[in-house]
């Protein structure tokens, strides 16, 4: 295995997905390296959520393969998912558990030994400032508290790949700032981040590379400069995005 090969944490090879007769994602090929923040943009219904669900093993590609840290998601799903964490756009928490109990559950599901789990829980609790409310049942949490708890749970087992769907929705400016700092730190530590978002300013600020999907196809991929070249348009990301996706109102996804 070459150094380049060992650096690849996520590989999508000719991934396609059909709903009925309609293609939601077509022939998607991507490689995400260690310590890279890859932003995934696209209009509503372009295939972003379908791609994320396939990356998390919740959906199967109609064609093609996805590997996480060298493990095929279909053939070796458990090992692949052990290296991955997913933060959905609508954070899920057990209403009748406290934040601390939720973190303990996630640690157990990931098979962390109890001592290590306690140590990691203390770390993420401090990191996400959960101390004040971690002993309350989560049904009383605000959106921001829920989001922080879900992020803390996602990072408990120090995943090599973090998939984040619309993380800034409903967060106040201070929380958004903290989130951006966190994502930068994680990338610096070597975590690969797959970020799906409509917040172009966040993407522009953080992303190493950006992929733009439209009508199920990857129509652009690269740094902002490379995307500008592909769009033959020199301007902010918003204009490049609109130029590349103009005319797409197909709504490929479910």
């Amino acid at each position: 295995m070459t150094q380049h090969e060992s650096e690849i944490q996520v590989r999508m090879d000719g991934v396609s997905r059909k709903y009925g007769e309609q293609w939601a994602v077509r022939d998607l090929c991507l490689e995400l390296r260690k310590g890279e923040l890859f932003a995934f943009l696209g209009p509503n219904g372009a295939g972003k959520t379908t791609t994320i669900k396939m990356m998390c093993g919740l959906l199967r590609p109609t064609a093609g393969t996805i590997t996480i840290c060298g493990h095929d998601l279909i053939a070796d799903g458990l090992a692949a998912r052990a290296n991955l964490s997913y933060v959905p756009d609508l954070p899920f928490l057990y209403e009748h558990l406290t934040g601390l109990e939720f973190l303990q559950l996630v640690a157990q599901l990931h098979g962390l030994d109890p001592d290590k789990a306690m140590e990691r829980i203390s770390t993420v609790t401090r990191q996400f400032e959960l101390e004040k409310f971690r002993d309350q049942v989560t049904m009383r949490y605000s959106h921001g508290m829920r989001q922080r708890t879900v992020f803390a749970a996602a990072l408990l087992h120090q995943p090599k790949v973090l998939v984040v769907d619309e993380p800034t929705v409903g967060l106040d400016p201070r929380s958004v700032r903290q989130l951006k700092d966190l994502l930068r730190e994680l990338v610096a530590e070597g975590t690969t981040i797959f970020l799906s978002s409509h917040s172009l300013d966040v993407v522009q600020e953080l992303a190493d590379r950006i992929g733009i999907i439209s009508g199920g196809k990857l129509i652009g991929c690269g740094s902002i400069g490379e995307l500008s070249s592909q769009a033959s348009h020199d301007g902010p990301l918003e204009e490049v995005f609109l130029k590349l996706t103009s005319g797409d109102e197909s709504g490929a996804g479910p």
Binding site: A82, N83, Y94, L97, T98, E101, L105, Q108, L109, G111
Partner: peptide, 25 residues
């Protein structure tokens, strides 16, 4: 740490049910 394959059986799920029941009570 991330690559470990968890084999915790149904223990976490039973604990989950017990804790949920305790908080509901």
């Amino acid at each position: 740490m991330t690559g470990s394959m968890p084999d915790s059986g149904l223990g976490p799920f039973l604990m989950l049910r017990l804790r949920q029941a305790r908080h509901q009570l």
